[in-house]
Design a protein around this nucleic acid. Sequence first.
RNA 1: GGUGGGGUUCCCGAGCGGUCAAAGGGAACAGACUGUAAAUCUGUCGGCAAUGCCUUCGGAGGUUCAAAUCCUCCCCCCACCA
Length: 438
Amino acid sequence: MPHVLDILEERGFIEAKTHGQELFDWLGAEGRTCYVGFDPTAASLHIGHLIPVMALAHMQRCGHRPIALVGGGTGLVGDPSGKTEMRQMLTPAAVRANADALKAQLARFIRFDEERALLLNNADWLVSLSYIDFLRDIGRHFSVNRMIKAESYRMRLDSDEGLSFIEFNYMLLQAYDFLELFRRCDCRLQMGGSDQWGNIVAGIDLVRKVCQEPAYGITFQLITTASGAKMGKTAAGAVWLDAERTPPYAYYQYWVNSADADVARFLALYTFLPMKEIREVAGLRDADLNLAKTVLAFETTQIVHGRQAAVEAMEAARCMFGARAVPVDLMPSSSIPRQGGTQGEEDAVPCTDLAVDAVAAGLPLFKLLQATGLSPSGGAARRLISQGGAYVNGQRVESPQQLVTMADFQNDGLLLRTGKKHFHRVRLKKVQPGEKED
RNA sequence: GGUGGGGUUCCCGAGCGGUCAAAGGGAACAGACUGUAAAUCUGUCGGCAAUGCCUUCGGAGGUUCAAAUCCUCCCCCCACCA
């Protein structure tokens, strides 16, 4: 079996690690326990969380035992690391609800059956801590002189806003988590984003001081897109793993729209396809690269939303954009369907129902653009049309006054498009007499 | 608690009585070029069935024909002092 550190290194995960050779040797044996913490600041993970999640999945595939630690306790405090502003404080009830939601999503990546991975919540040991005991047992091992020199606090200590005492304590709590997991599960490795370096090292030191045992840490690269933007940040907000927040189609589209320069890197980080095949992608040029983007989008969507949703998203995209089928010899390990697929599968495209009555008299198109959410306001829709950016059934709309009529509907359906890549279907809905339209 | 400096449209940031829906930049959106890429150029970028009307410049009042701009009170942030 290949060594997990080699895999993570080769695929571009690792930014820094402690104890180079010693860590390598320790991971050389099977069944090592490692962990990553996820604070439940929202009811869903987003793309930014994917790197540590994938890393845990690689750990498991290499025969180790990952722990996903949901921060039900630390989430009540809020990590200031690398943050320019203080986090909004969440109510304990919200933190609990979020923690439950995260568990379900993590199970997409990691198998938790038969103790092959653990899902723990640090609220189980943090919430009941006694202040004085904690200060005496844990707090005495921390040097404030050292803490204020930590890079992760630098931004806040230098800022106008400052650092509140509750946030200053976060490092101790996370260090205590590591100690607790070491004691409970013999967990000796903590991983996290590059902003977690300070917190991880604090935990390593604490384990050594309290138990005189070695512990290790790995931090991951901060992944940005080729244009320098944070992963998963769009104008509409984060790209979520929750299908309610980001539908599979939109999730798929996010990945298809990756920049050329990112494709190979993202395939390595966000899929499990073999590196040998990914390296071949580097030889692709121009439009051929789009095929690799299709594989990337399909694979990542499949992991998060399942095969069915991934196929639907891909078919919808193929239908809308008319992309070529992925050839058999491109990344053969991918389970992406290679044939043209079924015709006209548009189900994944966002859709709005419209009552016949509303159309019968003629509905101004700009109203419809607004109603479907393609335009944020009527004015924006009018501007869009006059700039030539609106299309009905593939036909450019010429005038802002244009009406949508029954003639525009084929099989009770109509396809709106704005710009190059925003599609929305409209379905005619026959309202029975006496039936109320919402 | 004292003194001083601030809170402007998605973000940064100008404006300091009419010419302000508010400069400039960024983000975003559309068009052209393309490959659902990048870069570039052009346009748009509070709302409204719209040559006009309405709502915005921390909040509430006030002065004025006219207020983001002046006055009063309040809230919040920052710096220095205690």
